Structures are given as structure tokens and as C-alpha cells.
Measured scan of single mutants.
Amino acid sequence: YIGSKISLISKAEIRYEGILYTIDTENSTVALAKVRSFGTEDRPTDRPIPPRDEVFEYIIFRGSDIKDLTVCE
């Protein structure tokens, strides 16, 4: 799965898409590269977040912050 395009939804209901870079089982983290944030879209939340235009080089997510993770390709 390393190198695959991943769609990830955080506990804050924010969806991110990026390339799976590393999975650290010891620290329970997932790192994505070339990440875009799509905001909360239409998911119900107390704090709606708009999508962002910039592409983040890397984002490291803690396993406890991840609600859903899907391989896109």
C-alpha cells in the first residue's frame, strides 16, 4: 500500500487525500505525502472546515485521530 493514493477522514470529520508514505506501527502513526485537505464537506460537525487549496508536503496522523481510511487506487 505504500505509494498508494489514500483518502483519510479524521475524527474532526476533515477529509484528506495523499500518497501513503509510511506506517509506523510502533507509534501508531500514518504519514501521507502531497496531501490535500477537503475540509468537512457535508459531514455533520460542530465546526465546519472549508477545503484548502495548498498541497502539504507531508502530514503525520496519529492512529487515534483517524476515523476512516480508504485506498483510492
Rank of each mutant, 00 (worst) to 15 (best):
E73W: 00
D68N: 09
E26R: 12
A33W: 07
K67R: 09
L69V: 09
I59S: 09
T25W: 04
N27L: 12
I59F: 03
L69C: 10
I14S: 07
A33N: 10
K11F: 11
R43C: 05
P48M: 07
V71H: 12
I60R: 14
I9G: 06
A33P: 00
G18Y: 02
L69P: 02
E13A: 10
R52C: 13
D65T: 04
I14M: 06
E73H: 13
T25D: 09
S10G: 04
S7G: 09
D24L: 02
K34W: 00
P50S: 10
L8C: 00
F38N: 01
P44S: 11
I59V: 09
G3H: 00
R43S: 02
P51M: 04
F61I: 07
T29M: 08
I6D: 06
S37P: 00
T40A: 01
R62M: 04
K34V: 02
T22K: 10
L32W: 00
T40P: 03
T70D: 09
Y16G: 00
D65N: 10
L8H: 01
I19N: 09
F38W: 02
D65Q: 13
R36M: 09
R43Q: 01
R15I: 08
G63S: 14
V55D: 06
T45M: 06
G3L: 04
S28R: 05
G18E: 00
S4T: 08
Y16N: 06
R62S: 14
R62E: 13
S4N: 10
I9M: 05
V71W: 09
S4E: 08
I23G: 07
E54Q: 08
E26S: 08
D53V: 10
I49Q: 14
E41P: 02
S28N: 12
E41Q: 10
E57W: 01
I23Q: 13
E54G: 11
A31K: 11
R15Y: 03
E17M: 10
D24C: 10
E17A: 03
F56L: 14
R43T: 02
T45E: 05
R47T: 11
Y16W: 07
R15F: 01
I49V: 12
I2M: 11
P48E: 04
G3Q: 04
I14P: 01
Y16R: 00
L20D: 03
L32F: 05
S28C: 08
D42E: 12
S4V: 05
P51F: 07
L69D: 03
K5Y: 08
E26Y: 01
E26N: 07
P50R: 09
L20N: 01
D46Q: 12
S28D: 15
D53G: 11
S37T: 07
P44A: 14
A12R: 13
V30T: 03
P44C: 11
R43P: 05
L32Q: 00
T70Q: 13
G39Q: 00
T22G: 10
G39V: 03
F61T: 03
Y21L: 14
L8D: 01
E41H: 04
G39Y: 04
S28Y: 13
C72G: 11
I49E: 14
K5T: 08
K11C: 07
K5D: 07
Y21I: 15
S64F: 08
E57F: 00
Y16A: 01
D42L: 06
A12Q: 15
T29R: 13
S28T: 08
I14W: 02
R43N: 11
R62L: 08
S64Y: 12
G63W: 06
V55H: 06
T40C: 02
I66C: 01
V71C: 10
T70N: 10
T40R: 02
I9C: 01
I9R: 03
Y16K: 05
D68E: 07
